[in-house]
Design a protein around this nucleic acid. Structure first.
Lengths: 307, 307
DNA sequence: CAACGTTACGCTCTTCGTAAAGATG
DNA sequence: CATCTTTACGAAGAGCGTAACGTTG
C-alpha cells in the first residue's frame, strides 16, 4: 500500500469518479493512476470503485470506508509536513481564513492588519462564503481557520472557540417614523418591509424563529449575504434593515440611523473553528490571539484536546 | 515522504533509539534505515532525533510531534488493511483481548466459548494484566478490545462501553465468627486481617477510600492480583477475603462461605474499551455483543462517534 | 465515433543489501 | 577495541510516460 495510491483514489473520488481528470489534477498520466488503483484493489483484495465494465460508476461500501481512512492518512501527512515548516521557517507559510462577509468586513480588518505586519512572510488568503461553506472548507482542509456564527458547533471534526457575542440592530433612513416611536419592539418591525441577511446565513434562522414565537411574520423584501447591500437598499427606502450591530458605522453610514435591537433577540456567538486533528502553525495561534486576546495558545490547545 | 520512513522512525523510537535493533525488528538492513531517516530529516529540513555525533540520544521537539503524527498515520494504514480483510474474509483474522484476571477467569469464559464456536477461523488471544496495562495495550494497538474496571474511562483515545456493574463480597472460612454476626459492616471487617486485590487493580482504590471516609483502616495482610490466590489464603486462615462477588462460586469454593457486601461499597462498573479511531472487524462487534447483549453494533458505533 | 479506461513496453529513478569506513564510549 | 552509524556501490524493482488497444454510451 503506497501513499500515492491513496492520493489517487482520493482525487478520483473528488473529480467525480474520473480517472482522467484525477490524473490531470495530479499532473500525472491516466495509465499510471489506473494501474495504481488496480494494484491497491488487488492488494486489499476488494473493489474500491463500482464499475460498469470499464466505467467507474460509484464507490463500493468498503471503498467508502477506505476513502475516509485514506483522507485521514493524507491529512496527517500534510500535518507532518507542516511541522517541518513550522520548525524551520516559523514565520513563513500560508494562512487561509474562511469567513462570512460580515466578519470579513467589520470584525477582521484590525486583526488582519496586525497579522500582515507581524508576519510579513505568511501569505494570507481570505475565503468568503456562507457559514456552511465556511465549515465545509475547514473540514476539507481548504481553509485553516473558519470564523462564523452558524453551522460550526455541530461539526464533530471542528474545535470551536467562542470568539465574541453580538446582537442585532435596526437601521433606518434618516427621519424614519420608527425613530420617534421608542421603544423598539418586534411588532413595530413587522409594520415595515424588512431587508436582512440571506437565510443561508442565519442558520437555524434564529431571527425568524424569534418572530415566529410571537406569531409575527415580517415582510422580508430582500435578503442579502452582505451588510453593505442591505444598507444600500435601506438608504434607497426599500425597507428597514435588520443586521448585526457591528455592521453599522455612524461615520460611514451617513443617511442612516441605528436603533439597538439587542433586547429583542437572543445574543449570537461567533466562533473560531479549526480542525481538531490539524497541526496549527505558530502564526495560526498568533492570528487567533490577535482576533481574540483571551484565546492564547494554551486555551486553543485545551479546546483541541477536549473530547 | 514515504510510509517506510515513518515506520522506521517509529521503530527506532520503540527500540530505545537504536537503529540496529529497529532494522532487526523490521527485517531489513541498518544502512537502509539510517539512510531513510536521513532522507526524511532532509526533506522536512529538521532533525527528528537528537544526536551526539552519530549516537541517537533522544527526540527533538519537532521529532516528538512528528512521531505522534506518524503513529497516527500508520495506525490508519493498518485500519485500511483491516477493511480489506473484513470484506474479503469477514470471519477470518485475529482478535486480541486485554483484560484482568477476574474478568478472564469469571466473566469472559461463556462469551469466549461462544465466540470460538461461532468464529472458528479467528485466532483469539487473551492478554492478562493490570487495568492500566490493559488500557495501554489497547491504546498501543496491541489489543483490539480491553475489558477492565479501572483506568479506562479517563483515556481520551478510548471509547468505553459500560459492560456491567458489580459489587464486592466477603469470603470467610466455614464457621468463621462473622457468619453469626449479621449484619456485615465495614467496622466488623476491620477486626480481621484482610486479603484483597492488589492496589494496582483497584485504581483510585475505591475500596480503601470507602474505609478511609469512615476513618477505618483495615489490616491488609496480603494483596493479590488474582481472586484464586485470595481465596486460597482465606482457606488457609490468613484472613478474610474481600473480592468481587462474581469471583465466589458456591460449588467450587468448598470450605468458604460468602457474605454479601454490596451495601458497604459503591458499585463498580466494568468497561469494554476500544480505540476510538480503530476500524472494528465484524467479529469484534460480535464478541462485544456476546459479552453484553445490549451492546449491538449501533450502540458501539454511537459510542465511538461520541466526542 | 468520441470519450474513457486498460494493456504493453521501455526508460528512469528509487530502494535495498553487502562491504567497508568512520565515530563513540 | 567492540559497538553502532554512516558512506559507497552495484543489483533488483517500482513507477511513469508514450503509444496502442478495448469498451462504453
Amino acid at each position: 500500500m503506497k501513499l500515492h495510491q491513496l492520493r489517487y483514489i482520493r482525487e478520483v473520488a473528488r473529480q467525480g469518479l474520473s480517472i482522467s481528470l484525477a490524473a490531470d489534477a495530479l499532473h500525472t498520466s491516466q495509465p499510471g493512476v489506473s494501474k495504481q488503483i488496480q494494484l491497491l484493489e488487488e492488494e486489499l483484495d476488494l473493489q474500491i470503485f463500482k464499475r460498469n465494465g470499464k466505467r467507474l460508476i460509484g464507490l463500493t461500501e468498503p471503498g467508502r470506508i477506505i476513502l475516509d481512512r485514506a483522507e485521514q492518512v493524507l491529512r496527517e501527512m500534510d500535518n507532518i509536513k507542516r511541522v517541518g515548516e513550522e520548525f524551520t521557517h516559523d514565520a513563513r507559510g500560508s494562512l487561509t481564513i474562511a469567513t462570512t462577509h460580515t466578519q470579513a468586513r467589520y470584525r477582521l480588518p484590525p486583526a488582519v492588519a496586525g497579522f500582515v505586519e507581524h508576519y510579513p512572510d505568511v501569505r494570507l488568503t481570505i475565503h468568503q462564503g456562507s457559514p456552511s461553506q465556511v465549515a465545509r472548507q475547514v473540514i476539507a482542509n481548504e481553509a485553516d481557520i473558519g470564523i462564523a456564527t452558524e453551522a460550526m458547533t455541530d461539526q464533530p471534526e471542528l474545535a470551536c472557540l467562542p470568539y465574541y457575542q453580538w446582537n442585532r440592530c435596526v437601521v433606518v433612513p434618516k427621519g424614519h417614523p420608527l425613530l420617534r416611536d421608542a421603544p423598539l419592539t418586534l411588532k413595530k418591525i413587522t409594520r415595515y418591509p424588512v431587508v436582512t441577511y440571506d437565510f443561508a446565513f442565519t442558520g437555524g434562522s434564529l431571527m425568524t424563529r424569534t418572530f415566529a414565537e410571537k406569531n409575527l411574520h415580517p415582510n422580508f423584501v430582500l435578503t442579502a449575504i452582505d451588510a453593505d447591500v442591505i444598507k444600500t437598499y435601506v438608504k434607497l427606502g426599500l425597507g428597514i434593515g435588520l443586521l448585526a450591530s457591528m455592521a453599522y458605522d455612524p461615520e460611514r453610514d451617513v443617511g442612516l440611523e441605528m436603533l439597538d435591537a439587542s433586547h429583542l433577540f437572543p445574543p449570537s456567538t461567533t466562533y473560531i473553528a479549526v480542525r481538531r486533528d490539524a497541526y496549527l502553525r505558530g502564526y495560526m495561534y498568533g492570528f487567533i490571539q490577535m482576533l481574540a486576546p483571551h484565546l492564547d495558545r494554551t486555551a486553543v490547545d485545551a479546546a483541541l484536546k477536549e473530547t
